[in-house]
Simulated scan of single mutants.
Amino acid sequence: MSNPKEIKRRILSIESVIKTTEAMKMVSIVKLRKIKDQLTQAKVYLDYIETVFLDLVFTEYENILNNNQYFAEKGKIKLFIVFTSDRGLCGSFNSLIFEKINHFFQKKEYLHNECVFFAIGKKGFDFLCNKYNMYNKSWISNNLSNQKIQYLGSEFILDFLRKKISSIYLIYNHLKKSLFQEVIIEKFLPITDKNFKRKRSEILYILEPSQKKILNILIPKFLDAKLLKIFLESTMSEHTSRMISMHKATENAYNIKQDLMLNYNKERQTTITKEILEIISGLESLSKKK
């Protein structure tokens, strides 16, 4: 059995852990609510712009497919943008992505020389830089504003248009349910019919000045909205995972504290009983001497 003083020290240590995990849980809840509002707005905007884009593209899909540079894949270098976190303590959020990447490229080892990676989040960079080819040998924090993520997307789009890379894929966590995450590998560029999850509305638009000029303005806006939505989904998944992890950590800490309190009380009772027995035995020895 442990010393009561040692048990008391451990109880105080567990109490500080409980305060920390509860605080981190509350911070994640506040951030999660904010991200949910932003994601709802981003989805509404993306739905509208996707509807218009579909109607414009699929009126002359074959012609656009052959002439528009956003729909053409040229070259061999494929860029994979990986969305991870900067910090840990978020459960399996990062490990699920790393397992998916390892599993995907173990089956396609011949792609290693053709693929480069870019990490959004320090954890992703730490994992990728030792195993895979990094794009520009750099990474960026996932603590980005909406404007910064759109600027980053525009830089990747420019590299695609300049034919530095042939295609862009996004790897991120999608929160299907409150307790279930799914790792998605989604093609971002070039644009294909698989980029759209809804059917066109068959609306005939009057285009001015021309379909080509309108598409050159509309396509970057569509891609920016899509990238922003995926970034917000990944961030929401991170905060949800961290909230759940901190909730479980708090519960486990409470259980440990209860066990320690029981041990502490037992040790105290044992010590008190021992002291009482010593006093009684001392009194008995004194009475015998008299």
Rank of each mutant, 00 (worst) to 15 (best):
P4K: 03
P4L: 01
E6V: 10
E6K: 11
R10Q: 11
R10L: 10
I11D: 03
L12I: 12
I14T: 11
T21I: 03
E22Q: 10
E22A: 08
E22F: 04
A23R: 06
M24I: 02
M24Q: 07
M26W: 07
V30H: 05
R33I: 03
Q38A: 06
K43Y: 00
V44R: 14
L46C: 01
D47S: 12
D47N: 15
Y48A: 06
Y48W: 02
Y48M: 09
T51Y: 04
T51V: 04
V52H: 00
A72T: 02
K74C: 02
K76L: 09
I77V: 11
K78H: 09
F80G: 00
I81T: 02
V82D: 08
F83P: 08
S85F: 00
S85P: 02
D86Y: 02
R87E: 15
C90Q: 09
S92P: 01
F93P: 05
F93A: 12
S95D: 07
S95M: 05
L96E: 07
E99Y: 10
K100W: 04
Q106F: 13
Y110G: 02
L111R: 08
N113T: 07
E114P: 01
E114A: 10
V116A: 12
F117P: 06
F117W: 06
F118V: 06
F118M: 05
G121A: 06
K123T: 07
G124H: 07
D126R: 10
L128H: 11
C129D: 04
K131C: 04
M134C: 05
Y135M: 03
K137P: 00
I140Y: 01
L144G: 00
S145L: 11
N146K: 13
Q147W: 11
K148N: 09
E155C: 10
E155L: 12
I157E: 13
L158S: 14
L161V: 09
K164M: 08
I168T: 13
Y169W: 06
Y169G: 01
I171W: 00
L175Y: 01
K177T: 15
F180T: 13
Q181L: 15
Q181V: 01
E182G: 00
V183N: 05
I184G: 01
E186N: 09
I191K: 03
T192M: 00
K194Y: 08
F196T: 04
R198S: 08
K199R: 14
K199S: 15
L204I: 12
I206L: 11
L207W: 06
E208W: 09
E208T: 10
P209W: 10
S210L: 05
Q211R: 15
K212D: 10
I214M: 08
I214H: 02
I217H: 14
L218P: 03
I219H: 11
I219A: 13
L223W: 00
D224M: 07
L227C: 10
L228S: 07
L228F: 04
K229M: 13
L232C: 07
L232P: 13
L232Y: 11
S234Q: 05
T235V: 04
M236P: 00
S237Q: 08
H239E: 15
T240H: 09
M243C: 14
I244T: 10
S245R: 08
M246S: 12
H247G: 12
A249V: 09
T250F: 11
E251R: 14
K257R: 15
K266E: 14
R268I: 03
R268F: 04
T271Q: 12
T271Y: 01
I276H: 08
I276G: 01
I279N: 05
G282P: 07
L286K: 14
K288R: 02
K289R: 15
K289C: 09
K289E: 14
